[in-house]
């Protein structure tokens, strides 16, 4: 084995750092390859629009399905942007993945201020889930029903939903969504499941309980907001190995690979971009080893570095996506597009 290793080291090829994006990325993989779409960026004839349409065969709304956008007032729904994305995905023959029904962030102000009895909260909760799911019935293939319900220590997060409905809100969310569209695949979605085994095991334990209780949970979304520093490849493999054992569909649902997680002054030099490409290649190639029927697909959380949420949210320079600020393919794209 050692001699083999030495031989391989001696003859290893230089990685490809430049390529064009002439072929769609999704064509290289047997599972859907998607991107989160920002409706601000989407417009006919732009580079963003062209890449969104050609490179991916699955789309996830980055924001426009979130309650603060869809449900701005009591009994008041705003469908225009979300419908535009549904039309876009249909016209481009792309799968539409719904994100997100129940979350503790990006809620409209009236929900935060809502003062009602537990029965009123239950009615609000059910109405939101079922109105949204019914509106998109037949157009959305799968839903992130609940997002980020667990804390890092494995306990349930104290969201407004848990405070007003109790811990059973999770189960109810899935049952209500299933009633509204029995054909849709329903996912639980969370972050750090790749790097935090305590949180991961808590989520997996809860999923086992849901399955034992006959709750319609079909898949698990691992967000995969990772960086070139963390997690180590072996931790990614360990996480995927554990979630595979659930038998659920696995969605790498919000992939980006930060090159500047410590928030220093950086320029995206060749070494950083190659490390990013290597990390991403390992992630995707390990995902390919899951059983085919568990591969729901992979989704990048944006298209170009110019559009990444990381720059806005963390107020730092970063370059975590497949295309650079000028919408040119980066080494991370090139290593996947072969």
């Amino acid at each position: 084995m050692l001699l083999t290793l030495v031989g391989l080291a001696a003859c290893q090829k230089e990685p490809l750092t430049q390529c064009d994006a002439a072929q769609p990325l999704h064509g290289y993989y047997p599972f859907p390859v998607g991107a989160a779409i920002s409706m601000i960026e989407l417009g006919r004839g732009t580079a963003y629009d062209e890449l969104a349409r050609r490179q991916f065969n699955s789309v996830t709304p980055e924001n426009c399905f979130k309650p603060s956008y869809l449900h701005p007032g009591p009994g008041q729904y705003y469908w225009a942007e979300a419908d535009a994305l549904a039309d876009f995905s249909q016209a481009s023959n792309q799968r539409l993945h719904g994100h997100v029904l129940i979350w503790h962030q990006q809620l409209p102000g009236w929900m935060w201020a809502f003062a009602g009895s537990p029965a009123d909260w239950e009615a609000l909760f059910k109405d939101h889930i079922q109105t949204v799911v019914r509106h998109f019935r037949g157009r959305v293939a799968g839903w992130d029903v609940v997002n980020e319900a667990f804390e890092a220590d494995g306990t349930l997060r104290s969201t407004i939903w848990k405070q007003h409905l109790g811990a059973t809100y999770l189960e109810k969310a899935f049952r209500y969504a299933h009633e509204a569209d029995p054909e849709a695949l329903l996912f639980y979605n969370d972050y750090d499941l790749d790097s935090n085994p305590v949180k991961r095991r808590a989520v997996l334990s809860w999923l086992r309980t849901m399955r034992q209780r006959g709750v319609p949970v079909h898949g698990l979304g691992l967000q995969m907001h990772i960086s070139i520093l963390n997690p180590e490849n072996t931790q990614i493999a360990e996480a995927l190995g554990e979630v595979q054992q659930t038998g659920l569909k696995i969605h790498l649902s919000e992939i980006d690979v930060a090159v500047n997680p410590l928030g220093k002054a950086v320029t995206p030099n060749r070494e950083l971009l190659q490390r990013q490409a290597d990390k991403l290649a390992f992630l995707v190639r390990t995902y390919q080893e899951l059983p085919r029927d568990q591969q729901y697909g992979i989704t990048f959380w944006g298209i170009s570095d110019q559009n990444t949420w990381i720059r806005r949210y963390f107020q730092r320079d970063d370059y975590p996506l497949l295309f650079d600020d000028n919408y040119q393919p980066k080494p991370a794209y090139c290593i996947l597009a072969r």
Binding site: T4, L5, A9, N233, I335
Partner: peptide
């Protein structure tokens, strides 16, 4: 720490 199969995948052979 190395991974011989990384050579096939054109990834760095040495992990750490």
């Amino acid at each position: 720490n190395t991974n011989p199969l990384y050579a096939v995948n054109e990834l760095p052979l040495v992990n750490g």
